[in-house]
Nucleic acid binder design. Sequence first.
DNA 1: ATGACCAATTGA
DNA 2: CAATTGGTCATG
Length: 683
Amino acid sequence: MTHPTYDDSAAQPELLPGLVRAQARRGRAPAKQKEVAAASVDPVARVLVDIPLAHLDRPFDYAVPESMAATAVPGARVKVRFAGQDVDAFVVSRVASSDHTGRLQPLRRVVSAEPVLSPKIAALSESVARRYAGSRADVLRLAVPPRHATTEKQPSEPEPALEAGLDRASVAWSDDTHGAAFVEGLADGRSPRAVWSAAPGTDWPERLAHAAAAAHASGRGAILCVPDGKDMARVDRALTRVLGSGHHVTLSAESGPSARYRDFLAISRGARRVVVGTRAAVFAPVHDLGLLAIWDDGDDLYAEPRAPYPHTREVMLLRAEAENSAVLVAGFARTVEAEYLLTTGWAVEITPPRQAIRDHLTVSVTGATDRELERDPMARSTRFPARAFEAIRTGLASGGPVLVQTPRAGYAASLACERCRTPARCATCQGPLRITSNERPPSCSWCGTDHPGFSCTTCGHRGLRAPVRGDARTAEELGRTFTSTVVRTSSGERVLSEVGDKPAIVVATPGAEPVAEGGYAAVVLLDTWLALGRLDLRTGEEALRRWMNAAALTRRGGQVIAVGDPAEPTLQALVRWDAGGFARREMAERRSAHLPPASRMATISGAPGAVDDVVTLLAAPEATEVLGPIPVENREGTPESRVVLRAPRQHGDALSRSLGEVQRLRSARKLDPVRVQVDPPGL
DNA sequence: ATGACCAATTGA
DNA sequence: CAATTGGTCATG
């Protein structure tokens, strides 16, 4: 142990035993022994150490030297000596005495007196860790952004006075049933909870801004969560229009460490109470939180990829319960989880009147079934049914832009046998074949081998078809057909946020659709069968969400053409613009199949032996089913084993608890780690 | 994680 | 008998 570096000055009421002992052990008699006095008020700091081990996920007590009495405040970052090394920690509270029987080590250093971990966020991190069978240290890494020292030295700008125009909030929401009541309740200081399925064409950023303004008018704060930076920018602008500038901040990793920390501090210091941000914004330490809102909660960007993999909507619900704030789960589409909130009566439904939907758009489905492709020569030569072309042509003629949504990005798409549709695979390595240009033969996308003389392994046919055209290829084809029209693409790395009001064709992949200034005259949804081809629990829900999000961008009187099978129920839900009905049917099916959200699920994956071990050790609730284990491959391609656990929803907490216990046990015994995911998004 | 400790196992 | 290994426990 080394000498402590802090100075001591004041007359000391009490010596810190840990230090005295450390001095004594050194064996040399120091000429001038450094003795450090403990703080006279609340000399004990309870801290959470930044070690993501399950069995260390509890507060530890440290002695507070007098020199740190004023800076080691609850919420401050400190350094402590723990198990022989210096680790980062947060002070969660200061108390008069400790239950700990041994000697307390002194805090090594107060990194910063800035209270970045508020008691409410500390409590939230605990409930999130419990829910997801993870550790608080992991949750805190998501909740508290990294410190930026220069930024911290700057004071936060105080919030300017607000000239309220609150009546406007109620007007903005009056079109939808229960909409006005929701914002009026907010403005009156109540905490209503709602699931809102927006009408196509709704300026939802404006609506969210008005809801935030209503909460703000009641003297409370609001957090608005959106999937990505593009949406955040839209809501940011809407908040500026509604509240004026200087009343809100944005929170996302995109803005960079300094700006992100500056905005975080403005919130944590109470200088701002309204936040719009991406998934981590749900942890923002907003004072007097009045409203928590999430837009498009089905977007997979809300599933945190880092342990313990919490979902923004679920964190939001936990937080709303704890802080008694209002909740708005919103989107054009509706997730089954949102539907569940309605079936239990936890939230009320805000919906547009049917007439408003009918007035806004017309959705029709045009066949790209094999039979129709045969009959429609246009569709055969270009893979666009005639009606899709017609919609584009009339849309452009009416003077507006047209959106074409195509399922996958990139020029090259993988190939299948033209006749039997068996995916075309490389003869050498089994990788998928693709075409990268019209001049070259198909080649393997893994090993690059060219296959000029391909023949199908199943039926021997020599022809290939591209099951999907990527967005670049689609744009190219459209450019050849509509020679005088500008064709723009938006996908992957190159996402357009907005397009103007002039006639143009915009080809975009799902989630990358730019907003058109005055709305699109027409929206064409290509290859809808592809989105429905996955064997995922959420296939239908996800497909409908993507289509609705694109279709909602039409202008009033817009045309939506979906290329697909008209008998497909998911497409029928789109035609009727019936997100609620679809979610209700989906909910019923999931309930009878014992799938979430009617059941709570969890997966355990890792080395086969370890997974087996966990299953035997696990004290899961009686009603838990254990499915598997099955062999799987993890992301590095190493073989692993995975089990799926399923329990009735009312036993969900018990399931999480048992998983948490087994994790604590295993981490204490240094056993092979296993990955536990509660409510994994893609099952 | 890291280190300490104890007990059982292994090797000369 | 010493050296090594493995399990358990505590970390304030």
